[in-house]
Simulated assay, not measured.
Amino acid sequence: MKAKPAVRKVLIVEDEGDLCLLLNLLLDGNDMEIDHVPTLAKAGEYLLQEEPAIVLLDNRLPDGYGIDFIGDIKRQHPTTKVIMISGVDAAARDVAIENGADDFIQKPFTKADIFQSVSRLMN
Rank of each mutant, 00 (worst) to 15 (best):
L40Q: 06
Q49D: 15
D63A: 09
V82R: 00
T110W: 05
L40Y: 06
Q106A: 12
P62F: 13
I12W: 02
R75C: 09
N30K: 14
L26F: 11
V118G: 02
M32T: 08
Y46D: 08
D28W: 09
V10F: 03
L57P: 05
H36V: 15
L48S: 11
D31H: 14
L26D: 01
D18V: 06
D68C: 07
D113W: 06
N99H: 15
L11G: 05
A92D: 13
E98Y: 06
I97A: 06
M1K: 15
V88Q: 10
K42L: 13
F69V: 10
E16T: 09
V55P: 01
R93W: 04
I34F: 07
T39P: 05
V95G: 03
T79A: 14
F109M: 07
Q116T: 09
R120P: 02
Q49K: 15
Q106Y: 09
L11R: 01
A92L: 14
T110E: 14
P38F: 03
K111Q: 13
I105W: 04
V7R: 11
D35W: 07
D18K: 09
D72W: 03
M122C: 11
A43N: 03
R93Y: 05
L25Y: 14
Q76N: 10
I67P: 00
S86Q: 07
Y46H: 10
L61N: 02
N30M: 11
I67D: 01
E51T: 13
E50S: 14
A112Q: 15
D63L: 08
S86C: 09
E14R: 05
R60E: 09
Y46N: 07
I12N: 00
D94I: 10
M84Q: 12
D72A: 06
I70W: 03
D72C: 04
T80M: 01
D72R: 05
G44C: 10
V13F: 08
V7G: 04
K2V: 07
R93D: 07
Q116C: 06
V82Q: 01
A91T: 13
G64A: 10
L56K: 02
S117N: 05
A91P: 04
I12E: 02
A53V: 05
V7F: 01
V13Q: 01
L121Q: 06
I97N: 04
T39D: 04
R120D: 07
K2Y: 05
I54R: 02
D31F: 13
I73Y: 04
K74T: 09
K4T: 12
G100N: 11
I73A: 00
P52N: 07
V13A: 02
R120Y: 08
Y46R: 09
A3R: 15
G44S: 15
A3V: 14
A53H: 05
I85S: 00
I83A: 00
N123Y: 08
L47T: 05
P78H: 06
F104C: 03
V118I: 09
K107V: 07
R75S: 10
V7A: 06
S119K: 12
A91H: 11
V82H: 00
A92T: 14
L21H: 13
K4L: 12
L47D: 01
M32W: 11
I105A: 10
P5R: 06
F109Q: 04
A91R: 12
L25T: 13
D35P: 03
V95W: 01
R93S: 08
D113Q: 07
L48V: 08
D15P: 09
T79D: 12
K4S: 11
G44E: 13
K111I: 07
E98W: 07
